[in-house]
Design a protein around this nucleic acid. Structure first.
Length: 898
DNA sequence: TTGCTTCAACATTCTTTGCACCCT
DNA sequence: AAGGGTGCTTTGAATGTTGAAGCA
């Protein structure tokens, strides 16, 4: 176990480093910008200032970016390295000068002052824009962080389902509050005493218990009745679930920014050192005396098991139910018995197969499940380490680091006087310090509204039904709630809309919705399976069937909630500033329409902003030129007038420049860009191909922007030399223009293949195949001929060489050099005599003969020595296909395998 | 102090159908 | 001499994005 922990630690370390580096990269822009701005200064100052002025802010991020990421070339050019080198160069120069004349040094100094023409203040500001790469990496970090937090939320949620935790909570609960589990018509008001009790008994702490899995962290928080806001919110959810209330664990996913160069400050976090430090130091509270003196028996037992067995939390669950019976309170024992002992059987009734993560060890796991669990574990460890670390850091100055953002007065429904405890130090009259609203619970109250409602319950801050306050609280922390996700049944659902009143403000800060929706899709199903209509998994059979019956004629909770959130989206209040309308999903101002946008129909006016009429976004239509619509496979209906006309940008055509002024006013009106809207279009109606003739445009070609643009009855053949093939077969064809290439400021058409009548397609393809085969054959022949030519050349040279050797070296006793390529007389003579008639086939034949001769005889008499080529001295080079045969005397022959 | 507007600077997108000259 | 390859005058305006300044 220890080793496993170590391994896990290293893994999480690695993960943290990796993501940290990514973050550093994402944040690099800001820091590097500063760096550059600073380091430009000394460069312009010449050598006078040697040390670059280091900005006072030496953040870890910057440090990291310097260390972990290779310097980019631009940085190297103007960065400190360059400065140092410059200095060194200068110094060398200086030394040289010293060597020549000792007095120059001072001159040199003064010269540098002369160079320093521009004072620091007048240095033009260099604002480095974020590059596409920076944006991409920021988005990547954003997504990864989002997934990590999502995974963490799921783990917390599964911990809330833990029957031991639930049972222990119930064991603490006063008997009168247990009645809540029997309430069928639940209202938010009915929850007040329960929340109040929870608030009084569980308190926020600023330090951490160390790195613990959610199950253990919750158990620990339960035991000591204090914990992080996250743990307490989770405990409240566990309590609701223990009481058979349908509830969710809701969390704001406080992710790193989507766009680079935005400093990421985790909500309510004292310092931001990385995306993992999302700790949430809260209002420091004195640990209150427990009103209920008895401790959780089950946890004492469990701790015992833990120490004696050293097993995982999961394994202990099996023995837990028997322990529950030892509870002294009979009612509690009954409830426990009911809720906990039902647990093993509940999986039978449970609709959601994954709702009991705790039992997974007993089920055969699929490979994907195992992998997913591992990923979850990793995500958990990573986030747990990060947060705990920051908590440890903030632990020292717990009071000072406690939540300090001013907050608007929030709804405190019950026990406001008691909750305004002395430990809440207010800095302003009328303001209350509240904990960071990162985590809370949602309980489904069937008697709220007509159809029932998910009620926001922040047990930590004692806020009930304060959904409209969350945004203000988050805003008070100078953060925005971009993602609010509700977790239940191992699933998750984005409920940001419920808490966000100004969606247009956060929409741009969220990741692209397609990706996010696809991530959430499977989780949504799990979530709605656990909460939508069907009462929670621990509910008994009767209630479950009742709910099922209800579901058969009542929309599910999930779908009702979807409608609710959708309605919120559609009834968002009008923004008060004009800029907000620029990309607002619901509303538009004519002022902010782009060149190619138009209001159609122009109305209804839904309001006014600074005197400008506000129209629904649905009225905004895109207009395009005829050509652009053509590219989309649409054409403008006949007799349609342009919906909008734009003045053609003045592009004076070189030679006519001087004449342009004369008839500018007259031509302009004629050459306006005519734009048409979608409502003025019809499907493309191109002339049909008749009698094998392809209808062409005035340039004798067919513009193939897409398949839609092909005249009916024609096909686009893209194979090379198609035009030649068609021409040879005397088939009518037209070059296919597929687009433009922009070079030197001009557009050049790009042609690819041809357009022919469909009936010729097969013929042409066949002809092309034949052609291709023929070309291949020709190429092969050409290659072979070339090979033979080279062989002939080689053999000729060898023969010549041999002749020269025979003639002039006969009398000499010199040895044949090792690397001289030799060949026996038979071969050479054969090659020579055959080379004369230049018959390629016979040459080839002789080559083969030569090859076999070499293979079989392998004995070439040279003078007294007869070469013997033994097999073991052979070597074959696969690249050149050359076989090298060697004689013991050192003589070698290379043979090419044909 | 905060939020909004305006402006400037830079980045990105859209634009959209040759020709003269040289070499083989 | 014909035909293929290569390189020009290396656009430029509109729009989108971001930061800074000014103002209420």
């Amino acid at each position: 176990m220890n080793s496993q922990h170590n391994a896990e630690g290293s893994l999480t370390e690695i993960s943290r480093d990796a993501v940290g580096k990514l973050l550093c990269r994402a944040n690099k822009v800001g820091t590097s910008k500063k760096k550059k701005m600073v380091e430009y200064v000394p460069e312009q100052n010449g050598t006078q200032v040697r040390e670059p002025i280091v900005p006072s802010k030496t953040s870890e991020v910057e440090h990291c970016s310097r260390n972990s990421i290779g310097k980019d070339p631009a940085e190297e050019k103007c960065g400190h390295v360059c400065l140092d080198e410059g200095y060194m160069d200068k110094k060398e120069e200086l030394d040289d000068l010293d060597w020549e004349d000792g007095t120059v040094a001072t001159d040199d100094h003064s010269m540098t002052i002369e160079l320093n023409v521009t004072p620091d203040s007048s240095v033009p500001k260099k604002i480095r824009r974020v590059s596409a790469e920076d944006k991409e990496s920021a988005e990547l970090v954003h997504k990864v962080h989002l997934l990590c937090l999502l995974a963490r939320g799921r783990l917390i949620d599964s911990a809330c389902d833990d029957p031991l935790i639930q049972a222990s909570l119930l064991s603490l609960l006063p008997a009168h509050l247990l009645q809540l589990s029997n309430v069928t018509k639940l209202t938010s008001k009915a929850l007040h005493p329960l929340i109040s009790w929870f608030h009084d008994n569980f308190h926020v702490k600023n330090y951490t218990n160390g790195e613990k899995a959610p199950h253990f962290a919750l158990a620990s928080a339960l035991e000591f009745r204090e914990g992080s806001p996250e743990e307490l919110a989770a405990l409240s959810v566990a309590l609701f679930r223990a009481l058979n209330l349908t509830s969710r664990f809701v969390s704001i996913l406080d992710v790193s920014p989507l766009k680079p160069d935005q400093s990421f400050r985790p909500i309510a976090s004292g310092s931001s050192k990385g995306i993992f430090n999302t700790s949430t130091p809260m209002v420091s509270k004195k640990k209150l005396d427990f009103k209920s003196p008895k401790k959780s028996l089950s946890y004492e037992k469990q701790k015992l098991c833990e120490s004696s067995l050293g097993h995982s939390w999961k394994s202990k669950k099996c023995i837990a139910p028997s322990n529950m019976h030892q509870s002294k309170d009979p009612s509690v024992a009954e409830v426990l018995n009911h809720s906990v002992t039902n647990f093993p059987t509940s999986e039978v009734h449970d609709i959601n197969p994954e709702s009991h993560i705790t039992d997974k060890s007993h089920k055969p796991k699929r490979k994907g499940d195992v992998e997913f669990e591992m990923q979850l574990e990793m995500a958990l460890s990573v986030t747990a380490i990060g947060s705990s670390k920051s908590k440890e850091e903030s632990g020292e100055n717990a009071d000072s680091s406690s939540f300090s953002c001013p907050s608007k007065r929030i709804k405190r429904v019950v026990g406001e006087e008691s909750s305004a405890s002395p430990q809440l130090i207010s800095t302003a009259v009328g303001s209350l310090k509240v904990g960071s609203p990162l985590y809370w619970a949602e309980v489904y109250c069937s008697e709220e509204n007509l159809t029932g409602k998910w009620v926001h319950i922040d047990a930590v801050n004692l806020i009930i039904d304060g959904e409209d306050k969350v945004e203000a609280m988050v805003a008070a922390c100078k953060a925005s709630l971009r993602y609010v996700v509700a977790f239940a049944g191992q699933g998750a659902k984005d409920v940001t809309r419920r808490y966000c009143m100004k969606w247009y403000k956060i929409a741009s800060q969220r990741v692209n919705s397609t990706w996010w929706d696809s991530v959430l899709a499977p989780l949504r199903n799990l979530e709605s399976g656990a909460t939508g209509g069907v009462v929670h998994s621990r509910t008994n059979q009767i209630i479950s069937t009742e709910a099922n019956m209800n579901d058969s004629f009542v929309p599910t909770r999930s779908s009702l909630e979807d409608i609710e959130l959708e309605t919120r989206a559609l009834t968002e209040p009008l923004p008060t500033n004009q800029q907000a309308y620029k990309n607002h999903p619901l509303y538009a101002l004519e002022k902010w329409l782009t060149r190619y946008q138009i209001l159609h129909p122009k109305g209804p006016i839904v309001g006014f902003c600074s005197g400008h009429p506000v129209y629904p976004r649905t009225c905004v239509q895109t207009v395009m030129t005829k050509l652009r619509w053509l590219q989309e496979g649409l054409q403008v209906k006949p007799n349609e007038h342009p919906a909008k006309e734009l003045k053609r940008p003045n592009k004076p055509q070189k030679v006519q420049d001087f004449e342009a002024d004369d008839y500018d006013c007259t031509t302009d009106s004629k050459e306006n860009i005519k734009l048409y809207g979608k409502w003025q279009l019809e499907p493309l109606n191109l002339p049909h191909a008749v009698n094998g003739i392809v209808p062409k445009n005035d340039r004798g070609q067919v513009d193939v922007w897409s398949e839609k643009c092909l005249p009916p009855g024609t096909v686009h053949l893209r194979f090379p030399r198609a035009y030649d093939v068609a021409k040879r077969l005397e088939i009518d064809s037209a070059p296919a223009m597929v687009g433009f290439e922009f070079k030197n400021g001009r557009a050049y058409p790009v042609h690819q293949g041809i357009v022919v009548c469909a009936e010729f397609k097969d013929v042409l393809l066949e002809a092309f195949a034949e052609e291709a085969e023929r070309l291949q054959e020709e190429e092969k022949k050409r290659d072979e001929a070339q090979a033979l030519r080279r062989w002939y050349q080689l053999l000729s040279s060898i023969v010549t060489r041999q002749r020269l050797n025979n003639r002039y070296n006969n009398n000499l006793t010199s040895e044949v050099p090792n690397d001289v390529h030799c060949i026996n007389d038979n071969v050479s003579s054969a090659a020579v005599c055959d080379s004369d008639d230049k018959n390629q086939t016979s040459i080839q034949h002789q080559m083969e003969k030569c090859d076999t001769d070499l293979d079989t005889s392998l004995s070439i008499p040279v003078k007294d020595h007869e070469h013997v080529f033994l097999k073991e001295y052979e070597s074959f080079d696969e690249e050149t296909s050359l076989l090298t045969k060697r004689c013991q005397c050192g003589f070698s022959v290379q043979v090419e395998e044909l």
